[in-house]
């Protein structure tokens, strides 16, 4: 139930911010479309903790901040390698273990790797991420497992230990 409510509130906020016209008839149409979408999603049975990850909401800002810093650093690094003359790359492929307990967590981990320039997740098979890195240093950084740790902390529900939670 609270996931459905979260979906409705989220969609309504999105609609209000994008519309910018607050006349009764437009508001009515917006309300109708939000409720209709929520009804269709409910009927399709896709409203759950994976599609509406409310439990992540509180921790996401801090993680986004850290990820932004990582993106800035590696952008600078990759940009230098592109512009400076000579071959400054040493492409490397590594296999990383994704320790997240939920598929959503693994998806966030893989997407974070891809979003950071210099590393791309090429495949994600049964908890193993195959990562293509532009230099060997980038690959060894990834093997350090800092990002893996942080995503694991991100997906953990409040107050629970780092163990697998009961599945629905």
């Amino acid at each position: 139930m609270r996931y459905l409510l979260g979906l409705i509130i989220g969609a309504a906020t999105l609609w209000l911010l994008l519309s910018g016209v607050y006349k009764p008839i437009v508001l009515g149409l917006g309300g109708f479309s939000v409720l209709f979408c929520a009804y269709v999603c409910h009927r399709m049975g896709i409203v759950d903790r994976e599609s509406v990850p409310l439990h992540l909401l509180a921790r996401v800002p801090l993680y986004a901040l850290w990820l932004g810093g990582e993106i800035a650093k590696s952008n600078w690094d990759v940009a230098k390698r592109i512009v400076l003359p000579g071959r400054r790359i040493s492409p490397t492929i590594v296999r990383l273990r994704a320790h997240q307990s939920s598929e959503l967590g693994q998806a966030i981990f893989a997407n974070s790797i891809t979003l950071t320039p210099g590393t791309v997740t090429v495949a994600l098979r049964s908890g193993d991420a195959i990562v293509h890195a532009i230099t060997e240093d980038n690959a060894t950084d990834m093997e350090g497992g800092d990002m893996d740790q942080r995503v694991r902390r991100l997906e953990r529900p409040f107050g629970a230990p780092a163990r697998r939670e009961a599945s629905e």
């Binding site: 990759v78 492409p91 979003l115 320039p117 791309v120």
Partner: peptide, 12 residues
């Protein structure tokens, strides 16, 4: 390796 270059434009 071109994908890494593409992600520089895409992010920064």
């Amino acid at each position: 390796t071109r994908m890494h270059a593409a992600s520089v434009t895409d992010t920064a």
